[in-house]
Amino acid sequence: MPDDQIVPRLTLVPNPENQTQMIVAQNLTKVYGDFTAVAGIDFTVAKGESFGLLGPNGAGKSTTMRMITATLQRSGGDLTILDKDPDKFGPQIRAHLGVVPQADNLDTELKVHENLYIYGRYFGLSRKYLTKKIDELLAFAQLEDKRNSKVDQLSGGMKRRLTIARALVNEPEVLLLDEPTTGLDPQARHVLWDRLFRLKEQGVTLVITTHYMDEAEQLCDRLIVMDQGKIMAQGSPASLIAEHSSPEVVEVRFGSDRNAAVAERISHIGDRMDVLPDRILIYAQDGEAALAEIISLGQHPVTSLVRRSSLEDVFLRLTGRTLVD
């Protein structure tokens, strides 16, 4: 048998050591009073990589993000961004970065094109440079005909695209996006993902926090799963699923009063089982076969679903909790 057939299809993609490291965090910690928001995490982000921080609300993702953007001082550990300490070289670091915050903070007192212009001026960029750049960015964000609109007149998706366009005004090497598609409808999300893919193709390093596993699977080459300020696991989406879950999942519902009782009788099926209040999850190599086995035992679920294993399952496995409550 040729060698390449033995190599598993889902391999862990390590962060290559010979590549330029854009961000290096070692034992990074943030403490507010007696609350530890980030509890000593280690990670690196390489040039051109698309790196994700996945976790539920309150996991410490946004706090980590703000420390990377040099707008929040760390309480402990080491952090370098482009080989510089953010405590000492905040403005110099921020000149390399594009920041898309969780909540839109566009300047509502200015028009759409002025938002891009003034933001560029904050970086000290010249009027001449910006005149050209604004046309380019409005085209990228598909907002050419909204150029003279007030920000309040834009839809949620348009505001998000304008915020991303604004973050690109200084041609950043690293773009940091905090929950980029929260609150957007599915179509607006896909438009946004498309724009982010284009940036990735151009070699922009992306750092993305999200609590949507589909977003993490779509956009991230590599990610860390965070919970309560700690890293629970890291790797590529595929390798995380391979390592911490089975290829397929069967979701069955027997009604909330019967789930627990049925679970005992079918617990031997598949690799592992999780009993949630509203449903039972069975992790298996072959989902259809597992479902057939359940039915052959005389247990007929009210609803059933066989699907591919996802990062959501990885998170549930690692923490015993779901990502979106």
Binding site: P91, Q92, H96, F123, G124, L125, L137, F140, N170, E171
Partner: peptide, 20 residues
């Protein structure tokens, strides 16, 4: 979009001038 990403951008040059 023009990809001058390999080179340090204009904003970086401006910020570095003040760093000392």
């Amino acid at each position: 979009m023009s990809s001058s990403l390999a080179l340090p951008n204009e904003a970086v040059a401006i910020a570095e001038k003040r760093s000392t």
